[in-house]
Design a protein around this nucleic acid. Sequence first.
DNA 1: AGCACGCCGACT
DNA 2: GTCGGCGTGCTC
Length: 732
Amino acid sequence: MSADSSTATQTVPVLVPTPSPEPYTYALGEGMQAGPGTIVQVPLGPRQVPGVVWDGAGEDAAVDPKKLRPVTAVFDCPPLTGDMRRFIGWVARYTLSAPGMVARMVLRVPAAFEPEPPVPGLQLTERRPERMTAARERVLALAGESSPMAWTRSGLAHAAGVSLSVVDGLTKAGAFEEIALPPQPVVAAPDPAYGAPDLQGEQAQAAKALADEVAAHAFSVTLLEGVTGAGKTEVYFEAIAAALEAGRQVLVMLPEIALTQSFIDRFEARFGAPPAPWHSDLPPKTREKVWRQVAEGSVRVVAGARSALFLPFADLGLIVVDEEHDAAYKQEDRVYYNARDMAVVRAKLAHCPAVLVSATPSVETRHNALEGRYRHVRLPRRFADAALPDVALVDMRKSPPARGGFLSPVLLEAMAETLQRGEQSLLFLNRRGYAPLTLCRACGHRFACENCSAWLVEHRFRGQLQCHHCGHHEPVPEACPQCGTFDHLVACGPGIERIAEETLAHFPEARVIVLSSDMVGGVKRLRLEMESIAKGEADIIIGTQLVAKGHNFPLLTLVGVVDADLGLANGDPRAAERTFQLLSQVTGRAGRTGRKSHGLIQTYQPEHPVLKACADGDLEAFYAAQIAERKRGAMPPFGRLAAIIVSANDRQSAEAHGRALRAAAPASGDIMVLGPAEAPLALVRGRHRFRLLVHGSERADMQAYLRAMIAAAPNPRGSVRVAVDVDPQSFL
DNA sequence: AGCACGCCGACT
DNA sequence: GTCGGCGTGCTC
């Protein structure tokens, strides 16, 4: 600080929620203190916004003093730690977004920056009322037993079984005095010694390996890999226990869908208290409390979706990323990031271990483990006597389904046997509705969406044709809109409704349940159906992707994959990986009880290496092939682009380029650059704003590619702005 | 005239 | 990201 600073206005750099590449400078009022990390409120245009005081004195890039506006308020809140500030800066640079927009993700808690108001409470005094009643006796007895403890007004009334007026009367008579209670913790403290399991063999070894990493108090990454049912959760719970014993905080990240009551219940059974939850639809009050108490360090364990990574932990000792391969970790709006990768960075900056957990790790994580960058801890066997199902491919050319059907005799036979034994079967098909395409046999007209040109999917149960891209729907017409012919519309291909129809035709007595995300009755109904399945109230379950994740079907002994070829040829650069993960997950649903179980995978390409790897359970072959393929690819550290379209930042020309790409029908994995030849260079130099159209599942990966491109030819002005958009049609 | 909508620049 | 200003073009 210069010598004359006492006379000049004090200024501070503040990150504000704008796309500005730099912090703004604000004047600090007389007597205000605000070091780096302090959370403040500042005026921005016509509004007041939260901001965080950034590092650097702010005197060099001198702003026009006339523009300087004063900091409105300095919050009484723990400042963001140096780790947290470095993390914000790192994420901003890596994702090509403005640091203020990253800070915004940290500060997106409406009113958590002021200390929680104390709760009004009552404490017993020496005085007693003149008139005593039975109700008053009860209250005084209860309050007397727990001598130093204070009560809330309603809590005391409730516990004593009296009305509020009894308590109020006693307070008025001077038997209680009003005191201020500290704010309630959102969750009780978890106890690492509560419900400690007696792990044996491989589980015990794995748990020790993780606990050692936690004890080392240093950055490390471990891949915890194990088949479904091997007890991965129990093992990483021991790493959490180790961090708790060391007095540090823990973040457990889960894909939103896995943040279920059953996870919370398991956690509570192990630690005697639930973790603090964090996800997008947490009630605002809880949200504020969790944020505040995480910042103060009183919340010890958070279980959250990807946004939990931006909570301001006071002393982070461990990050667990469960289901690390899950695509839900990719945030694909505003700031584009993959929370799994950012978790590793956060752990590095916080000098703590990260544990990535999966039965089917992503190819890049598996590669990092094989290369020795990550420690690799494996649980190859199922826990207790549960055995993995025997999985076999069904060659549909050799045992074709009956005309008009989609289930091969082999699968139907296995279903019949399973039914006879009184056991459950699951048929998996990743397609909602009755049929994915409807056409007119008279003129060949195909029903397509008027907005986005995707085929309309027939939903026979609702009597509608639906577009799964934009939500457009129309009733199924009786005549062809093109040629007017009646009764010539045919459904092409299967959806789960159609599979249900075929199943009921073969097994009219069976109790069949159909599960999909668009189920009538919503999430509530879905949960009820899941419960009735667990109770054995269904014989055959037919479902989409939804059945692969989260829920367990304890009685299941047969899994049939209706069409394994479905996901393999859709142009997604991760098609092979995703198919492998999905099929492993869905066949892994079977056999949890220890009964003999089977998986049957129907395919027209039984020699396909991905499907063979699924049938043989040969992970090594699968990963070796994928890694080799990625290494040949263009995307760092590896990975391949489906396509890049570089075009001017207006929707019309971007869409024109999308159409051009479709016309060119690119081979999967090719890189295409459309637009002027120098477009990529112009992008790097920041002369224009560009829009990229890429396959929906790969936008976060695309960031990595762009980052490498820009690193190769740095942009001196640092002003490249990239918007990444999806054109769901480009690769169909 | 009145206003809905889209584009553009400023915000410290 | 969010706001206000301003121009265009349409409706009452």
